[in-house]
Design a protein around this nucleic acid. Structure first.
Length: 458
DNA sequence: TGAAATGTTGGGGCG
DNA sequence: ACGCCCCAACATTTC
């Protein structure tokens, strides 16, 4: 494309629509916008999935960080709410912009947004959507018979054969500002922060949202996950990357994470740890892949026979689980860590989820909804795929009869009890701790019995 | 990226 | 010395 810097700069501006890619470095949409040589109007439009209390808190700070970074370059983020086609059309007609650039998203509502955009604005605007969020776009990994994979391992093999991702471009791009005079909502107007009460104290202590915070976490990666293969299942040890919320909001790219792992490997991180960590990135790809190919993933079981599973709708038990008073220390510790910090160790997520779905037989969708509301890394694809996996109704092999014993899991993965004592202080303080709300052995039998109905219906 | 039930083996106590 | 039993350790099967 010709690059002409016209005196006085009368070139039509480009709209750069930020979505779940709230960073400047190694951002394909930013790169495309910069390469046009045209002035850029950075835009964010409040979206229906700006949902979930903890996630909204994060989003506020991530947007604030992006806006601050843009302001150091003499521009700023135009913040709107409403339907993207309407808002973007209004911006285009007010500024004479003739091009729109954004990173593609894979969630069902986002895809229909993008279709509407193409329909409504495709004639007036040159629309460029780029693949940027995954190692591989979801269409690229298919079976021989051109159907989507349903099981992780074959997916992983096929995706790995496509090679490693490109090296990230970690330089800070320069965005040419455009004098647009557009209205922008103050960030506060989006109402993303908790008001009264302000429950975000634990979140503030635990996290630094935004691209700077993400890069700091990435810098800490080599130390944090040096022994990932041995430590990743130990909630008492702090051996995971804690990158999930940064990745969810696109404050860093998957390529940057990949490169950081490879770099750590070349400086002494064991190969098995590096591989295990990279494998997690493929799990993330797989979740989005499943959501793309099976858009009902968030609400309907992929194994249809589970529609007849006799789930129990019990508000009191659900609340006991949510509030961390099930009487099972490892479960309660996890649920309290979640409530306090907006995050839960992955091993404990599996244990807590298994308890809800199998011991209490409460529908997995209710657990998924709670996680979406309380996790700072709340992510429709990862959350839906993981809950279906735990519930045994997903495509992957996690048979329903695999039932976690919360006591054994605690002994195995929190052998000294450090984790449970940290989050359930009454265990040591002598305060009253609830008796188990169900007997695990009985609950297990009941769940297996219920599973017979599903099997018989198959 | 389970756990419990059931089966098998082998060492050691003991009559 | 030998067979019998107990039971822990490990393996396999089942849910």
């Amino acid at each position: 494309m010709g690059f002409l810097r016209v005196a006085g700069n009368r070139m039509a501006p480009v709209i750069l629509w930020f979505r779940r890619n709230l960073r400047l470095r190694d951002n394909a949409a930013v790169r495309e916008a910069v390469e046009t040589g045209h002035p850029i109007i950075p835009v964010y439009i409040a979206s229906p999935d700006d949902a979930g209390g903890a996630s909204r808190w994060w989003l506020h700070h991530s947007l604030a960080g992006l806006d601050a970074a843009l302001r150091t370059q003499g521009t700023s983020l135009v913040i709107r709410s409403g339907s993207p086609p309407q808002q973007l059309a209004a911006i285009a007609s007010a500024t004479g912009a003739d091009q729109l650039i954004f990173a593609r998203r894979l969630e069902p509502f986002a895809r229909s947004e993008e279709r509407a955009l193409e329909n409504d604005l495709g004639d007036a605007l040159d629309i460029l959507s780029v693949d940027d969020s995954l190692l591989n776009p979801p269409e690229r990994v298919m079976t021989q018979s051109a159907t989507p994979y349903r099981v992780f391992t074959p997916f992983y093999r096929a995706a790995s054969r496509l090679g490693e991702p490109a090296s990230p471009d970690n330089s800070l791009p320069r965005l040419q500002a455009h004098e647009h005079g557009l209205d922008s909502l103050p960030l506060e107007a989006l109402g993303l922060l908790p008001q009264s009460p302000d429950w975000a104290g634990g979140l503030r202590e635990s996290w630094s949202p935004g691209e700077d915070g993400a890069l700091a976490r990435l810098d800490a990666l080599p130390d944090a996950v040096l022994r990932y293969a041995e430590h990743r299942d130990r909630p008492d040890l702090d051996g995971t990357s804690r990158l999930s919320p940064h990745l969810h909001f696109g404050e860093i790219s998957v390529r940057q994470v990949w490169a950081a792992v490879r770099a750590a490997e070349s400086r002494g991180m064991a190969a098995d740890s590096a591989e295990a960590l990279l494998r997690q990135l493929y799990w993330r790809d797989f979740s989005y892949y499943l959501l793309f190919h099976f858009p009902r993933l968030p609400d309907a079981p992929l194994r249809e026979e589970f529609e007849r599973f006799p789930w129990v709708d019990d508000r009191e038990l659900l609340e006991a689980w949510q509030q961390g008073r099930t009487g099972y220390p490892i479960v309660d510790a996890g649920m309290r860590q979640l409530w306090h910090t907006g995050w839960m160790h992955n091993r404990v997520r599996m244990i807590a989820a298994s308890f809800l779905v199998k011991d209490l037989m409460i529908p997995w969708q209710q657990g998924a909804a709670w996680f979406l509301d309380t996790l700072v890394d709340a992510d429709l694809a990862n959350n839906s795929a993981s809950w279906q996996w735990v519930a045994g109704c997903g495509t992957d092999a996690a048979p329903y009869f695999r039932i976690f014993n919360p006591t054994l899991q605690g002994q195995k993965f929190d052998p000294n009890g450090d984790y449970i004592r940290r989050w359930v202080p009454e265990l040591t303080s002598g305060e009253v701790y609830p008796a188990p709300i169900v007997d695990h052995a009985e609950a297990r039998d009941r769940a297996l019995e219920a599973y017979q109905l599903v099997k018989a219906a198959r």
